[in-house]
Design a protein around this nucleic acid. Structure first.
Lengths: 233, 233
DNA sequence: CAGTGGTCTAGACCACTGA
DNA sequence: CAGTGGTCTAGACCACTGA
Protein backbone atom coordinates (compact mmCIF):
# COMPACT_ATOMS: atom_id res chain seq x y z
CA UNK A 1 0.00 0.00 0.00
CA UNK A 2 1.37 3.38 -0.97
CA UNK A 3 1.59 6.25 1.42
CA UNK A 4 -0.33 8.41 -1.02
CA UNK A 5 -3.33 6.08 -1.04
CA UNK A 6 -3.23 5.71 2.73
CA UNK A 7 -3.23 9.46 3.14
CA UNK A 8 -6.04 9.83 0.61
CA UNK A 9 -8.03 7.17 2.45
CA UNK A 10 -7.51 8.91 5.77
CA UNK A 11 -8.64 12.25 4.43
CA UNK A 12 -11.59 10.63 2.69
CA UNK A 13 -12.77 9.08 5.93
CA UNK A 14 -12.40 12.34 7.81
CA UNK A 15 -14.47 14.09 5.17
CA UNK A 16 -17.15 11.42 5.06
CA UNK A 17 -17.54 11.18 8.84
CA UNK A 18 -17.96 14.94 8.97
CA UNK A 19 -14.78 15.73 10.89
CA UNK A 20 -13.84 17.88 7.90
CA UNK A 21 -17.10 19.57 7.06
CA UNK A 22 -18.31 20.97 3.78
CA UNK A 23 -16.67 24.21 2.73
CA UNK A 24 -14.16 24.00 5.56
CA UNK A 25 -10.51 24.55 4.76
CA UNK A 26 -7.81 21.94 5.15
CA UNK A 27 -4.74 22.86 7.18
CA UNK A 28 -1.83 24.24 5.15
CA UNK A 29 -0.09 21.50 3.18
CA UNK A 30 3.15 21.88 5.08
CA UNK A 31 1.43 21.40 8.43
CA UNK A 32 -0.78 18.57 7.27
CA UNK A 33 2.11 16.70 5.70
CA UNK A 34 4.09 16.87 8.91
CA UNK A 35 1.10 15.81 11.00
CA UNK A 36 0.56 12.81 8.73
CA UNK A 37 4.24 11.94 8.62
CA UNK A 38 4.69 12.22 4.86
CA UNK A 39 6.45 14.63 2.58
CA UNK A 40 4.53 17.49 1.09
CA UNK A 41 4.78 15.97 -2.40
CA UNK A 42 3.14 12.78 -1.21
CA UNK A 43 0.38 14.70 0.53
CA UNK A 44 -0.20 16.65 -2.66
CA UNK A 45 -0.61 13.40 -4.55
CA UNK A 46 -3.35 12.37 -2.14
CA UNK A 47 -5.04 15.76 -2.36
CA UNK A 48 -4.99 15.56 -6.13
CA UNK A 49 -6.72 12.18 -6.01
CA UNK A 50 -9.49 13.55 -3.82
CA UNK A 51 -9.81 16.68 -5.94
CA UNK A 52 -10.26 14.48 -9.00
CA UNK A 53 -12.98 12.58 -7.15
CA UNK A 54 -14.67 15.89 -6.47
CA UNK A 55 -14.27 15.70 -2.69
CA UNK A 56 -11.82 18.57 -2.43
CA UNK A 57 -11.65 21.91 -4.21
CA UNK A 58 -8.30 23.54 -4.84
CA UNK A 59 -7.53 27.17 -5.55
CA UNK A 60 -4.07 28.65 -5.99
CA UNK A 61 -2.88 30.65 -3.00
CA UNK A 62 -5.95 29.58 -1.03
CA UNK A 63 -6.34 26.71 1.34
CA UNK A 64 -7.83 23.61 -0.19
CA UNK A 65 -11.45 23.20 0.88
CA UNK A 66 -13.87 20.33 1.27
CA UNK A 67 -16.34 20.41 -1.61
CA UNK A 68 -20.00 21.28 -1.14
CA UNK A 69 -22.85 18.79 -1.54
CA UNK A 70 -23.46 19.82 -5.12
CA UNK A 71 -23.16 16.64 -7.10
CA UNK A 72 -21.08 17.61 -10.10
CA UNK A 73 -22.62 15.06 -12.40
CA UNK A 74 -20.40 15.72 -15.38
CA UNK A 75 -21.59 12.71 -17.26
CA UNK A 76 -23.89 10.37 -15.39
CA UNK A 77 -22.84 6.80 -15.73
CA UNK A 78 -25.26 3.93 -15.67
CA UNK A 79 -25.19 0.20 -16.13
CA UNK A 80 -26.73 -1.23 -19.26
CA UNK A 81 -29.69 -2.46 -17.21
CA UNK A 82 -30.32 0.94 -15.66
CA UNK A 83 -29.98 2.72 -18.96
CA UNK A 84 -32.46 0.44 -20.70
CA UNK A 85 -34.94 0.82 -17.88
CA UNK A 86 -34.81 4.61 -17.99
CA UNK A 87 -35.43 4.38 -21.72
CA UNK A 88 -38.41 2.15 -21.10
CA UNK A 89 -36.96 -1.05 -22.52
CA UNK A 90 -36.79 -4.44 -20.85
CA UNK A 91 -33.14 -5.51 -20.53
CA UNK A 92 -31.90 -9.05 -20.31
CA UNK A 93 -28.69 -10.88 -21.09
CA UNK A 94 -27.52 -14.04 -22.72
CA UNK A 95 -24.27 -15.29 -21.23
CA UNK A 96 -22.11 -16.48 -24.09
CA UNK A 97 -19.06 -17.26 -22.02
CA UNK A 98 -17.96 -16.99 -18.43
CA UNK A 99 -14.68 -18.47 -17.38
CA UNK A 100 -11.59 -17.96 -15.31
CA UNK A 101 -8.77 -16.77 -17.51
CA UNK A 102 -5.32 -15.26 -17.38
CA UNK A 103 -4.55 -11.57 -17.91
CA UNK A 104 -2.56 -10.70 -20.98
CA UNK A 105 -0.52 -7.50 -21.18
CA UNK A 106 -3.44 -5.29 -22.14
CA UNK A 107 -5.94 -6.66 -19.63
CA UNK A 108 -3.33 -6.63 -16.89
CA UNK A 109 -2.53 -2.99 -17.56
CA UNK A 110 -6.17 -1.98 -17.48
CA UNK A 111 -6.97 -3.92 -14.31
CA UNK A 112 -3.72 -2.90 -12.59
CA UNK A 113 -2.79 -6.55 -12.21
CA UNK A 114 0.28 -8.49 -13.19
CA UNK A 115 0.45 -10.25 -16.51
CA UNK A 116 -0.69 -13.81 -15.92
CA UNK A 117 -2.90 -12.91 -12.96
CA UNK A 118 -6.21 -14.76 -12.75
CA UNK A 119 -9.21 -12.87 -14.11
CA UNK A 120 -12.83 -13.57 -14.87
CA UNK A 121 -13.83 -13.29 -18.49
CA UNK A 122 -17.48 -12.65 -19.21
CA UNK A 123 -19.07 -12.28 -22.60
CA UNK A 124 -22.72 -11.29 -22.72
CA UNK A 125 -25.14 -10.46 -25.47
CA UNK A 126 -27.40 -7.75 -24.13
CA UNK A 127 -30.99 -7.41 -25.22
CA UNK A 128 -33.47 -4.57 -25.14
CA UNK A 129 -37.03 -5.83 -25.52
CA UNK A 130 -35.81 -9.14 -26.94
CA UNK A 131 -33.65 -7.50 -29.61
CA UNK A 132 -29.88 -7.97 -29.36
CA UNK A 133 -28.41 -4.50 -28.85
CA UNK A 134 -24.88 -4.91 -27.60
CA UNK A 135 -22.12 -7.48 -27.32
CA UNK A 136 -20.20 -6.98 -24.12
CA UNK A 137 -16.87 -8.48 -23.16
CA UNK A 138 -15.51 -7.80 -19.72
CA UNK A 139 -12.67 -8.73 -17.43
CA UNK A 140 -12.69 -8.56 -13.64
CA UNK A 141 -9.96 -9.41 -11.12
CA UNK A 142 -10.52 -13.01 -10.06
CA UNK A 143 -9.27 -12.50 -6.52
CA UNK A 144 -12.00 -10.05 -5.72
CA UNK A 145 -14.93 -11.28 -7.77
CA UNK A 146 -14.58 -15.07 -7.93
CA UNK A 147 -18.05 -15.51 -6.46
CA UNK A 148 -19.58 -14.21 -9.70
CA UNK A 149 -18.73 -17.52 -11.38
CA UNK A 150 -21.38 -19.19 -9.25
CA UNK A 151 -24.16 -16.66 -9.81
CA UNK A 152 -26.84 -16.11 -12.41
CA UNK A 153 -25.98 -13.02 -14.42
CA UNK A 154 -28.62 -13.45 -17.09
CA UNK A 155 -31.35 -11.57 -15.30
CA UNK A 156 -29.55 -9.52 -12.67
CA UNK A 157 -27.41 -6.42 -13.10
CA UNK A 158 -23.73 -7.11 -12.53
CA UNK A 159 -23.35 -3.85 -10.63
CA UNK A 160 -26.24 -4.57 -8.29
CA UNK A 161 -24.83 -8.02 -7.56
CA UNK A 162 -21.37 -6.82 -6.65
CA UNK A 163 -22.84 -4.01 -4.58
CA UNK A 164 -25.14 -6.32 -2.64
CA UNK A 165 -22.77 -9.24 -2.26
CA UNK A 166 -19.49 -7.42 -1.83
CA UNK A 167 -20.37 -3.84 -0.97
CA UNK A 168 -18.37 -2.68 -3.99
CA UNK A 169 -19.81 0.37 -5.69
CA UNK A 170 -18.64 1.58 -9.09
CA UNK A 171 -18.33 5.37 -8.95
CA UNK A 172 -16.15 6.38 -11.86
CA UNK A 173 -15.58 5.12 -15.38
CA UNK A 174 -13.10 6.14 -18.02
CA UNK A 175 -14.60 5.50 -21.37
CA UNK A 176 -13.72 5.88 -25.01
CA UNK A 177 -16.05 5.66 -27.98
CA UNK A 178 -15.22 4.95 -31.58
CA UNK A 179 -17.00 3.95 -34.76
CA UNK A 180 -16.22 0.55 -36.27
CA UNK A 181 -17.68 -1.93 -38.74
CA UNK A 182 -19.08 -5.32 -37.70
CA UNK A 183 -16.94 -8.34 -38.55
CA UNK A 184 -18.56 -11.40 -40.06
CA UNK A 185 -18.83 -13.10 -36.67
CA UNK A 186 -20.24 -10.06 -34.93
CA UNK A 187 -22.68 -9.41 -37.75
CA UNK A 188 -23.91 -12.96 -37.40
CA UNK A 189 -24.59 -12.47 -33.69
CA UNK A 190 -26.75 -9.43 -34.39
CA UNK A 191 -28.24 -10.81 -37.61
CA UNK A 192 -27.00 -7.74 -39.46
CA UNK A 193 -25.03 -7.41 -42.70
CA UNK A 194 -21.24 -7.60 -42.45
CA UNK A 195 -19.83 -4.09 -42.46
CA UNK A 196 -22.76 -2.51 -40.61
CA UNK A 197 -21.72 0.45 -38.46
CA UNK A 198 -21.33 -0.04 -34.71
CA UNK A 199 -20.25 1.93 -31.65
CA UNK A 200 -17.36 0.38 -29.77
CA UNK A 201 -16.92 1.64 -26.22
CA UNK A 202 -14.00 0.72 -24.00
CA UNK A 203 -14.51 1.26 -20.30
CA UNK A 204 -12.46 0.93 -17.13
CA UNK A 205 -14.56 1.24 -13.99
CA UNK A 206 -13.35 2.15 -10.50
CA UNK A 207 -14.81 1.85 -7.02
CA UNK A 208 -14.73 4.57 -4.36
CA UNK A 209 -11.30 3.38 -3.23
CA UNK A 210 -9.87 3.89 -6.67
CA UNK A 211 -9.62 0.12 -7.22
CA UNK A 212 -10.37 -1.15 -10.71
CA UNK A 213 -13.56 -3.17 -10.90
CA UNK A 214 -13.70 -4.08 -14.55
CA UNK A 215 -12.27 -3.50 -17.98
CA UNK A 216 -14.97 -3.83 -20.59
CA UNK A 217 -15.69 -3.33 -24.24
CA UNK A 218 -19.23 -3.02 -25.56
CA UNK A 219 -20.15 -3.22 -29.19
CA UNK A 220 -23.49 -1.50 -29.85
CA UNK A 221 -25.28 -1.95 -33.15
CA UNK A 222 -25.32 1.41 -34.90
CA UNK A 223 -28.83 1.15 -36.27
CA UNK A 224 -30.59 0.91 -32.92
CA UNK A 225 -28.39 2.62 -30.39
CA UNK A 226 -27.37 6.18 -29.77
CA UNK A 227 -25.33 7.20 -26.74
CA UNK A 228 -26.39 10.40 -25.00
CA UNK A 229 -24.42 12.66 -22.69
CA UNK A 230 -24.59 15.94 -20.91
CA UNK A 231 -21.26 17.72 -20.76
CA UNK A 232 -20.40 20.70 -18.64
CA UNK A 233 -17.53 23.03 -18.12
CA UNK B 1 5.70 28.47 -18.96
CA UNK B 2 6.42 25.45 -16.79
CA UNK B 3 9.21 23.07 -17.52
CA UNK B 4 6.75 20.19 -17.45
CA UNK B 5 4.64 21.67 -20.24
CA UNK B 6 7.69 22.54 -22.28
CA UNK B 7 8.95 19.00 -21.98
CA UNK B 8 5.51 17.62 -22.84
CA UNK B 9 5.37 19.90 -25.88
CA UNK B 10 8.80 18.82 -27.04
CA UNK B 11 7.94 15.15 -26.74
CA UNK B 12 4.61 15.74 -28.44
CA UNK B 13 6.33 17.36 -31.41
CA UNK B 14 8.87 14.57 -31.66
CA UNK B 15 6.05 12.05 -31.68
CA UNK B 16 4.07 13.95 -34.28
CA UNK B 17 6.95 14.52 -36.67
CA UNK B 18 7.68 10.82 -36.52
CA UNK B 19 11.05 11.07 -34.82
CA UNK B 20 9.49 8.93 -32.11
CA UNK B 21 7.48 6.43 -34.11
CA UNK B 22 4.41 4.46 -33.13
CA UNK B 23 5.14 1.58 -30.77
CA UNK B 24 8.74 2.66 -30.34
CA UNK B 25 10.14 2.93 -26.84
CA UNK B 26 11.24 6.16 -25.18
CA UNK B 27 14.73 6.31 -23.69
CA UNK B 28 14.92 5.45 -19.98
CA UNK B 29 13.52 8.23 -17.82
CA UNK B 30 16.85 8.94 -16.15
CA UNK B 31 18.61 9.42 -19.49
CA UNK B 32 15.81 11.43 -21.03
CA UNK B 33 15.56 13.73 -18.03
CA UNK B 34 19.26 14.48 -18.17
CA UNK B 35 19.18 15.04 -21.93
CA UNK B 36 16.30 17.48 -21.51
CA UNK B 37 17.88 19.22 -18.54
CA UNK B 38 15.09 18.55 -16.05
CA UNK B 39 14.71 16.36 -13.03
CA UNK B 40 13.20 12.94 -13.39
CA UNK B 41 10.08 13.99 -11.47
CA UNK B 42 9.45 16.81 -13.89
CA UNK B 43 9.93 14.53 -16.86
CA UNK B 44 7.50 12.07 -15.31
CA UNK B 45 4.92 14.84 -15.03
CA UNK B 46 5.24 15.49 -18.74
CA UNK B 47 5.03 11.78 -19.54
CA UNK B 48 1.90 11.48 -17.43
CA UNK B 49 0.30 14.34 -19.35
CA UNK B 50 0.98 12.64 -22.66
CA UNK B 51 -0.16 9.28 -21.34
CA UNK B 52 -3.44 10.86 -20.27
CA UNK B 53 -3.79 12.29 -23.74
CA UNK B 54 -3.29 8.81 -25.10
CA UNK B 55 -0.03 9.59 -26.90
CA UNK B 56 2.14 7.44 -24.67
CA UNK B 57 1.56 4.05 -23.10
CA UNK B 58 3.20 3.20 -19.81
CA UNK B 59 3.90 -0.19 -18.30
CA UNK B 60 5.71 -0.86 -15.04
CA UNK B 61 9.27 -2.05 -15.48
CA UNK B 62 9.05 -1.52 -19.22
CA UNK B 63 10.04 1.45 -21.26
CA UNK B 64 7.27 3.86 -22.01
CA UNK B 65 6.14 3.50 -25.62
CA UNK B 66 4.52 5.75 -28.19
CA UNK B 67 0.87 4.81 -28.63
CA UNK B 68 -0.79 3.65 -31.82
CA UNK B 69 -2.34 6.03 -34.26
CA UNK B 70 -5.86 6.79 -33.00
CA UNK B 71 -6.29 10.27 -31.60
CA UNK B 72 -7.78 9.73 -28.21
CA UNK B 73 -9.28 12.55 -26.23
CA UNK B 74 -9.86 13.91 -22.78
CA UNK B 75 -12.61 14.70 -20.35
CA UNK B 76 -15.11 17.47 -20.22
CA UNK B 77 -16.52 19.48 -22.99
CA UNK B 78 -14.24 21.39 -25.28
CA UNK B 79 -14.40 23.04 -28.60
CA UNK B 80 -12.75 21.28 -31.47
CA UNK B 81 -9.96 23.85 -31.45
CA UNK B 82 -9.27 23.40 -27.74
CA UNK B 83 -9.35 19.67 -28.06
CA UNK B 84 -6.86 19.60 -30.88
CA UNK B 85 -4.57 22.02 -29.11
CA UNK B 86 -4.45 19.93 -25.96
CA UNK B 87 -3.59 16.98 -28.17
CA UNK B 88 -0.81 19.02 -29.68
CA UNK B 89 -2.38 19.11 -33.13
CA UNK B 90 -2.77 22.29 -35.12
CA UNK B 91 -6.47 22.84 -35.75
CA UNK B 92 -7.81 24.83 -38.62
CA UNK B 93 -11.04 25.02 -40.54
CA UNK B 94 -12.19 25.29 -44.08
CA UNK B 95 -15.50 27.13 -44.30
CA UNK B 96 -17.62 25.30 -46.83
CA UNK B 97 -20.71 27.38 -46.34
CA UNK B 98 -21.87 30.25 -44.16
CA UNK B 99 -25.22 31.86 -44.81
CA UNK B 100 -28.31 33.25 -43.25
CA UNK B 101 -31.11 30.69 -43.46
CA UNK B 102 -34.54 29.90 -42.12
CA UNK B 103 -35.24 27.41 -39.34
CA UNK B 104 -37.12 24.27 -40.31
CA UNK B 105 -39.11 22.31 -37.75
CA UNK B 106 -36.14 20.37 -36.42
CA UNK B 107 -33.73 23.29 -36.18
CA UNK B 108 -36.41 25.52 -34.65
CA UNK B 109 -37.12 22.93 -31.97
CA UNK B 110 -33.47 22.56 -31.08
CA UNK B 111 -32.78 26.30 -30.96
CA UNK B 112 -36.06 27.08 -29.15
CA UNK B 113 -37.11 29.38 -32.01
CA UNK B 114 -40.23 29.50 -34.14
CA UNK B 115 -40.32 27.73 -37.46
CA UNK B 116 -39.22 30.22 -40.12
CA UNK B 117 -37.04 32.26 -37.72
CA UNK B 118 -33.75 33.52 -39.14
CA UNK B 119 -30.68 31.41 -38.33
CA UNK B 120 -27.05 31.24 -39.34
CA UNK B 121 -25.96 28.07 -41.09
CA UNK B 122 -22.28 27.21 -40.95
CA UNK B 123 -20.59 24.21 -42.50
CA UNK B 124 -16.93 23.65 -41.74
CA UNK B 125 -14.41 20.98 -42.53
CA UNK B 126 -12.15 20.71 -39.53
CA UNK B 127 -8.52 19.76 -39.81
CA UNK B 128 -5.96 18.43 -37.37
CA UNK B 129 -2.46 19.03 -38.70
CA UNK B 130 -3.73 19.43 -42.25
CA UNK B 131 -5.70 16.22 -42.21
CA UNK B 132 -9.50 16.53 -42.46
CA UNK B 133 -10.88 15.01 -39.26
CA UNK B 134 -14.48 16.17 -38.95
CA UNK B 135 -17.28 17.70 -40.97
CA UNK B 136 -19.32 20.06 -38.84
CA UNK B 137 -22.69 21.59 -39.60
CA UNK B 138 -24.16 24.07 -37.17
CA UNK B 139 -27.06 26.43 -36.68
CA UNK B 140 -27.12 29.51 -34.46
CA UNK B 141 -29.90 32.03 -33.78
CA UNK B 142 -29.42 34.91 -36.19
CA UNK B 143 -30.70 37.56 -33.79
CA UNK B 144 -27.95 36.95 -31.33
CA UNK B 145 -25.02 35.98 -33.52
CA UNK B 146 -25.43 37.93 -36.76
CA UNK B 147 -21.98 39.49 -36.35
CA UNK B 148 -20.39 36.10 -37.06
CA UNK B 149 -21.27 36.50 -40.72
CA UNK B 150 -18.69 39.27 -40.98
CA UNK B 151 -15.86 37.47 -39.20
CA UNK B 152 -13.14 35.07 -40.19
CA UNK B 153 -13.91 31.68 -38.70
CA UNK B 154 -11.26 29.73 -40.53
CA UNK B 155 -8.51 30.28 -38.01
CA UNK B 156 -10.32 31.32 -34.84
CA UNK B 157 -12.34 29.21 -32.45
CA UNK B 158 -16.05 29.95 -32.69
CA UNK B 159 -16.39 29.73 -28.93
CA UNK B 160 -13.55 32.15 -28.27
CA UNK B 161 -15.05 34.63 -30.74
CA UNK B 162 -18.48 34.63 -29.18
CA UNK B 163 -16.97 34.84 -25.74
CA UNK B 164 -14.75 37.80 -26.63
CA UNK B 165 -17.20 39.66 -28.83
CA UNK B 166 -20.44 38.93 -27.01
CA UNK B 167 -19.45 37.69 -23.57
CA UNK B 168 -21.38 34.50 -24.22
CA UNK B 169 -19.85 31.41 -22.65
CA UNK B 170 -20.98 27.90 -23.51
CA UNK B 171 -21.19 25.91 -20.28
CA UNK B 172 -23.38 22.91 -21.02
CA UNK B 173 -23.93 20.64 -23.98
CA UNK B 174 -26.40 17.85 -24.56
CA UNK B 175 -24.82 15.44 -26.93
CA UNK B 176 -25.60 12.17 -28.61
CA UNK B 177 -23.19 9.88 -30.38
CA UNK B 178 -23.91 7.23 -32.95
CA UNK B 179 -22.06 5.12 -35.48
CA UNK B 180 -22.80 5.67 -39.17
CA UNK B 181 -21.30 4.97 -42.57
CA UNK B 182 -19.94 7.69 -44.82
CA UNK B 183 -22.07 8.53 -47.84
CA UNK B 184 -20.44 8.97 -51.22
CA UNK B 185 -20.31 12.73 -50.82
CA UNK B 186 -18.92 12.61 -47.28
CA UNK B 187 -16.39 9.97 -48.23
CA UNK B 188 -15.20 12.22 -51.03
CA UNK B 189 -14.65 15.08 -48.62
CA UNK B 190 -12.44 12.94 -46.39
CA UNK B 191 -10.85 11.00 -49.26
CA UNK B 192 -12.00 7.75 -47.69
CA UNK B 193 -13.85 4.79 -49.18
CA UNK B 194 -17.63 4.97 -49.27
CA UNK B 195 -19.02 3.02 -46.33
CA UNK B 196 -16.15 3.82 -43.96
CA UNK B 197 -17.26 4.02 -40.31
CA UNK B 198 -17.74 7.43 -38.71
CA UNK B 199 -18.91 8.92 -35.43
CA UNK B 200 -21.86 11.25 -35.75
CA UNK B 201 -22.40 13.55 -32.79
CA UNK B 202 -25.39 15.84 -32.39
CA UNK B 203 -24.98 18.64 -29.89
CA UNK B 204 -27.09 21.43 -28.46
CA UNK B 205 -25.04 23.94 -26.48
CA UNK B 206 -26.27 26.32 -23.78
CA UNK B 207 -24.80 29.38 -22.12
CA UNK B 208 -24.81 30.07 -18.40
CA UNK B 209 -28.26 31.65 -18.71
CA UNK B 210 -29.72 28.50 -20.20
CA UNK B 211 -30.04 30.12 -23.64
CA UNK B 212 -29.30 27.92 -26.64
CA UNK B 213 -26.14 28.91 -28.46
CA UNK B 214 -25.99 26.35 -31.23
CA UNK B 215 -27.35 23.12 -32.61
CA UNK B 216 -24.60 21.18 -34.32
CA UNK B 217 -23.75 17.86 -35.87
CA UNK B 218 -20.18 16.68 -36.32
CA UNK B 219 -19.11 13.76 -38.43
CA UNK B 220 -15.75 12.37 -37.30
CA UNK B 221 -13.85 9.90 -39.42
CA UNK B 222 -13.73 6.59 -37.53
CA UNK B 223 -10.19 5.68 -38.46
CA UNK B 224 -8.52 8.65 -36.81
CA UNK B 225 -10.77 9.75 -34.02
CA UNK B 226 -11.81 8.30 -30.70
CA UNK B 227 -13.93 10.20 -28.20
CA UNK B 228 -13.06 9.75 -24.54
CA UNK B 229 -15.04 10.55 -21.45
CA UNK B 230 -14.88 10.26 -17.70
CA UNK B 231 -18.21 9.39 -16.16
CA UNK B 232 -19.08 9.56 -12.49
CA UNK B 233 -21.95 8.73 -10.24
C1' DC C 1 22.67 -9.22 -12.19
C1' DA C 2 21.77 -4.36 -14.32
C1' DG C 3 17.74 -1.93 -16.09
C1' DT C 4 13.31 -0.09 -15.50
C1' DG C 5 9.34 2.55 -14.03
C1' DG C 6 6.79 3.71 -9.40
C1' DT C 7 7.13 6.03 -5.29
C1' DC C 8 8.93 9.06 -1.83
C1' DT C 9 11.81 12.57 0.66
C1' DA C 10 13.46 17.11 2.26
C1' DG C 11 14.40 20.60 0.79
C1' DA C 12 14.02 25.05 -2.69
C1' DC C 13 12.03 29.07 -5.27
C1' DC C 14 7.99 31.10 -7.48
C1' DA C 15 3.65 33.98 -8.03
C1' DC C 16 -0.02 35.38 -5.98
C1' DT C 17 -3.37 36.85 -2.17
C1' DG C 18 -4.71 39.67 1.56
C1' DA C 19 -3.72 42.02 5.87
C1' DC D 1 4.78 41.48 4.81
C1' DA D 2 3.85 36.31 6.05
C1' DG D 3 0.97 32.64 4.14
C1' DT D 4 -0.34 29.76 0.49
C1' DG D 5 -0.50 26.43 -3.21
C1' DG D 6 2.29 25.32 -7.68
C1' DT D 7 6.41 23.73 -9.37
C1' DC D 8 10.95 21.78 -9.36
C1' DT D 9 15.35 19.47 -7.88
C1' DA D 10 18.63 15.73 -6.79
C1' DG D 11 18.77 12.43 -4.74
C1' DA D 12 16.82 7.59 -2.54
C1' DC D 13 14.71 2.87 -2.23
C1' DC D 14 11.36 -0.41 -4.09
C1' DA D 15 9.49 -4.34 -6.98
C1' DC D 16 9.72 -6.26 -10.94
C1' DT D 17 11.53 -7.96 -15.60
C1' DG D 18 14.69 -10.38 -18.44
C1' DA D 19 19.34 -11.67 -19.71
Amino acid sequence: MFARDQVAGQLRRRIECGELTAESALPPERELAEALGVSRMTLRGAIEQLANEGLLVRQPNRRTRVAGDKISRSVAFMSFSEEMQTRGWRPHSQIRQMTAAVADVSVAAQLALEVGAKVIYLERLRFADDEPLALERLYLPYARFALLLALDLASQSLYSIIEQELGVRPVLAEESVEAVLLSAEEAGIFSLPVGSPALLTRRVTYDDQGQVIEAATSLYRGDRYRMTLVRRR
